[in-house]
Amino acid sequence: MSDATEVIGLLHRYADALDRRDWAALDTVFSPDVSADYAGSEIVSGRDNLAGMIRGYLDGCGPTQHLMGNESAAIDGETGTVTAKMRVHHIGQGRPDLQYEVFGWYHATVRRGPEGWRIVSWRQEVTHELGTYEVFGRG
């Protein structure tokens, strides 16, 4: 498997982990020292803090679908970058009338370590939103 294919696979594992609520799988996506910026609304340092922030949204939400496409990767030795278009749909837990959808890009810097490729810097760029944040059940 090529390095580019492996780092694009990180994005797919991220999407699957969130949609399946498989929080332990995030250990195979992010480095322990990851920094993340979710469109300026959430800025987090550290994998455990990032997983906690994500859970703060999705534990109160119903079904989600994180779709990625038009991925591109550039590798330079033990580091690289990967970018993908994203479209994410959220439905309220027990409230299908509540929906929130976001469009944009994910941008990541990756590093190869003893356990393989991991994301060390993560940024969500939002280009469009539809619906309500009430879908997250956060009050």
Rank of each mutant, 00 (worst) to 15 (best):
F103L: 05
G104Q: 04
G113S: 13
G56E: 07
V82M: 07
M86L: 15
T109N: 11
T132P: 07
Y133H: 14
D48P: 03
R111Y: 01
E78M: 07
T132W: 09
E101F: 06
C61S: 08
P63Q: 10
R47C: 04
G104N: 10
T109C: 09
I119G: 01
T132H: 13
M86V: 15
Y57E: 04
R47Y: 01
E78D: 14
S45M: 02
G77Y: 07
T79Y: 01
W122V: 00
L50P: 01
L130M: 08
S121R: 01
F136G: 10
R118K: 11
G69D: 06
S45W: 03
D59K: 04
A108Y: 01
M86K: 02
H66T: 12
L50N: 02
C61P: 01
D48K: 06
D97H: 08
G69K: 06
G69N: 07
E71T: 11
G92W: 07
L130P: 00
A51C: 04
Q65W: 09
A73G: 06
G113L: 05
R47L: 06
I54L: 15
R55H: 03
Y57F: 15
I54Q: 06
G77W: 09
G62L: 06
V126D: 09
A108N: 01
W117M: 13
P63A: 14
T81V: 14
G80T: 08
V82R: 02
H90M: 10
K85L: 15
E115I: 05
G56L: 10
N70H: 12
W122K: 02
R112I: 04
D59C: 10
L67V: 13
M53Y: 00
I91D: 02
T109W: 03
N49W: 06
L130V: 11
R47M: 04
S45L: 10
V102W: 05
G52H: 11
Y106M: 02
L58A: 05
E78R: 08
Q65N: 13
R118I: 04
Q93Y: 03
K85S: 14
R47W: 03
G92Q: 12
F103Y: 13
Y57A: 10
V102R: 05
M53G: 02
I54Y: 04
